[in-house]
Nucleic acid binder design. Structure first.
Length: 721
DNA sequence: AAGGTGCCCATTTTT
DNA sequence: TGGGCACCTT
């Protein structure tokens, strides 16, 4: 392959990054500036021009999807499969290291990964055992605390608890860690921390990896947390060839431990050269101008300004909806118009700040027969029936796995009740052994009724006999046998309704997935089953939505990152919603919300609508929100207000005003005499008179109080009578 | 052991 | 408002 092909079609800045001499680099890559392209081409460049072996390259991403895409694009560029190159997520790569050196990491060979749900269940059990009232201290809070500590690289011994609350947190952290260690379980944060500690304490091992990975590339660097940064820095050693790609303006995960500061830290620690990718290939000039203006309100920035040599495009449309129903109706209407223009449904995306907002929209889409797809939600390997089955497989692999034991000991019901179970738990605690062995002891001690003994025995034998099949059967057959012999299949077949049918299908799909699974060649698993289990927890699978279907794409602003759509709606852009109420309280949060808004806006390719509702039913109460400050921060020449906006004179006193209604929404809002209206703008009022319809209508309102808030937009022109 | 009731809570999410 | 969950009832 001709080397120049690697640079063809790149702009100057991209080319500078791809063809740079071996050095540490920060590529500040704006939205839609072709960062993946740069990463992929850089990898190809390293191999073709620098003659680097694929073995010497380590590329890290955050999501499996991104890792997969990067690998396939590298392979496409190099026109052939690359083997030996490490491309993966932080968790995936760390996990691989732990597998390979489980002994040095003090982990059993059969160690398993706990997902967040397992983790919370595990903590919940501990809380019960420790007599901690879950009502007062929810398990989730502990999970949060533990995760946050691990993300910062702190073990219980490193933490000083100042108040009682933190002392409790710490106590549970220590107990939880102990339980995990005994059971051979690691949670997600543990994977990173453990792998970091492993490298930090094993100089030979560290040197091995440092020597191997001469080149490191990191995607979405602004999302790295403390421990990920330390991990990278440790692994990089004195390397002169690490390229990080990121965008401080798109850092939206501070709340889960991401540190934008890592970018500056990197510049300092690695004495890196900075390249800015500011040419955008996605959006219209108008959208970019508005986005730039918005983000310039943030103080802490590396500085960057997106530009395009494309068209200006249409202005951004702002729609002030009457309420959330009107907002949904508006979105539906505009999407229909879009379709009439000969465009596809899947080109449309509706973005919202929190998941609850999707409901009203769904209803509206359903009503109009528009297909939609919601991103996020329960993933395949996280489903109840799937996890049940997986826990059988886990226990088969590792008898110490208390989390799995707890989940399936009486699923399906086999007459092992609370009493029997607490016997087993007590025994486990008193004798410091896993539940599995405690169950055996309890049976031997004959403290139980004959019936209970039978039931427990049956369970133990079931698992043991299933383990025997490992050598004889392939993974698919084994999964099938497990799901059948455990009674799970029968149990879910008996479940009535659509739900039961779906669950049976999912179980079949799981068997299918086992058949499809091929253990990765580079990684050593003692059995294919172990490999499969690791795969299920590190890669939870797709959500429920069908990807190929032509449907409106609905998702939170967070999950929209990295995607692009010709037509984008941002809904609920109101003070208190977005920026969210909570973000006012903590410092720095507001800027993150603004970055989130920036991310949302820069998803749009050709047309962007921003909607806000003046009244919204929230938690069963009518709330009046003013338009988000983010709307105000957009330059007026980039924006068009869809509802006719009229500058109005602020009513200075209570009394009668007449209003000329300027929008048809009032047509079906159906004013009635005596109705209370026009809330947030001028305070509450009563409709005195209403005539005509739509833009022709006139309404007289008597305001009994003049609101303290002053806003420039209005539905109607108000005139003192 | 399933079904009902009442209570509490209420961003954002990947691994 | 409504969903999830713990607890209570049959």
């Amino acid at each position: 392959m001709d080397v120049s092909e690697l640079l063809d079609g790149l702009n100057d800045k991209q080319r500078e990054a791809v063809a740079a001499p071996l050095q540490n680099m920060l590529v500040l890559a704006g939205a839609g500036s072709g960062k993946t392209r740069v990463l992929v081409h850089r990898i190809a460049w390293l191999m073709q021009v620098e003659q680097s072996s694929p073995y010497s390259i380590l590329a890290v991403t955050f999501t499996n999807k991104a890792a997969k895409e990067m690998r396939s694009r590298v392979e496409a560029t190099l026109q052939g499969p690359v083997s030996g190159m490490w491309i993966g997520t932080f968790h995936g790569l760390s996990h691989r290291i732990l597998r390979q050196h489980h002994k040095e990491a003090n982990l059993p060979e059969s160690f398993q990964v706990l997902d967040s749900d397992d983790q919370v269940r595990m903590i919940r059990r501990l809380l019960k055992a420790m007599n901690i009232d879950e009502k007062k201290w929810p398990a989730k809070q502990f999970a949060w605390y533990i995760g946050a500590q691990k993300d910062e690289g702190r073990r219980p011994k490193d933490i000083q608890a100042f108040d009682l609350n933190e002392q409790l947190m710490l106590k549970v952290y220590a107990a939880y860690q102990d339980a995990c260690d005994r059971a051979g379980l690691v949670d997600f944060a543990e994977i990173l921390l453990r792998s970091y500690e492993l490298l930090a304490t094993q100089p030979t091992l560290l040197r091995h990896y440092q020597n191997r990975f001469a080149h490191m590339l990191v995607d979405e660097f602004q999302d790295t947390n403390r421990i990920q940064y330390l991990w990278l820095r440790l692994l990089a050693g004195g390397s002169r060839s690490i390229m990080i790609v990121g965008d401080d303006d798109q850092s939206i995960y501070g709340w889960r431990g991401a540190r934008v500061e890592n970018i500056r830290q990197f510049l300092e620690d690695f004495d890196a050269h900075t390249i800015r990718l500011e040419q955008n290939y996605r959006s219209t000039a108008t959208i970019l101008k508005a986005s730039n203006a918005l983000i310039s309100n943030n103080a802490e920035r590396m500085g960057k300004s997106l530009w395009t040599d494309g068209v200006d495009g249409e202005p951004i449309s702002i729609y002030a909806a009457f309420n959330e129903l009107d907002e949904a109706r508006f979105v539906v209407g505009k999407i229909k118009t879009w379709l009439q223009g000969g465009n596809a449904l899947q080109e449309c995306a509706v973005l919202y700040r929190n998941n609850a907002q999707s409901r009203i929209l769904e209803e509206a889409f359903l009503q109009e027969g528009l297909k939609y797809r919601i991103y996020g939600g329960m993933r395949f390997f996280e489903r109840q029936e799937i996890k049940d089955a997986l826990c059988y497989l886990r226990l088969i692999t590792n008898r110490n796995d208390d989390a799995a034991f707890e989940r399936i000991i009486n699923t399906p019901v086999r007459g092992i009740g609370d009493k029997t179970l607490s016997h087993i738990r007590d025994c486990a605690r008193n004798t410091s052994q896993p539940l599995w062995y405690a169950a055996k002891s309890v049976i031997a001690e004959k403290h139980l009724s004959g019936r209970a003994v039978n039931a427990v025995n049956q369970f133990l034998e079931l698992v043991e006999s299933l383990e025997q099949t490992i050598d004889e059967l392939n993974l698919e057959q084994q999964a099938k046998l497990t799901i059948e012999r455990s009674g799970l299949m029968a149990m879910y077949q008996a479940e009535k309704g659509e739900k039961g049918r779906a669950r049976v299908e999912n179980l079949e799909e799981l068997i299918n997935a086992c058949g499809q699974y091929e253990p990765p060649v580079e990684e050593e698993f003692s059995t294919p089953l172990q490999g499969f289990l690791a795969y299920t927890s590190l890669e939870a699978g797709e959500g429920q939505a069908e990807e190929h279907e032509d449907a409106v794409q609905m998702m939170t602003l967070h999950s929209a990152k990295g995607l692009e759509f010709p037509l984008v709606f941002m809904v609920g852009v109101e003070e208190g919603m977005f920026p969210s109420q909570q973000s006012h309280e903590e410092s720095g949060r507001l800027e993150e919300e603004r970055r989130l808004c920036y991310v949302g806006m820069t998803r749009a390719m050709t047309k962007l609508y921003i909607c806000h509702a003046e009244s919204r039913r929230l938690y069963g109460q009518e709330k009046y929100h003013s338009p988000s400050r983010f709307i105000r921060e957009l330059p007026t020449d980039c924006v068009e207000e869809i509802r006719i906006k009229t500058q109005v004179t602020r009513p200075t006193s209570a009394g009668r005003f007449s209003a000329t209604v300027t929008h048809a929404v009032f047509e079906d809002s159906g004013f009635t005499l005596g109705q209370r209206v026009l809330h947030a703008k001028f305070g509450a009022g009563t409709v005195l008179n209403y005539e005509g319809s739509g833009a022709q209508s006139r309404i007289q309102v008597n305001f009994d109080d003049v609101g303290s808030k002053w806003l420039v937009t209005a539905y109607a022109r108000l005139q003192p009578l």
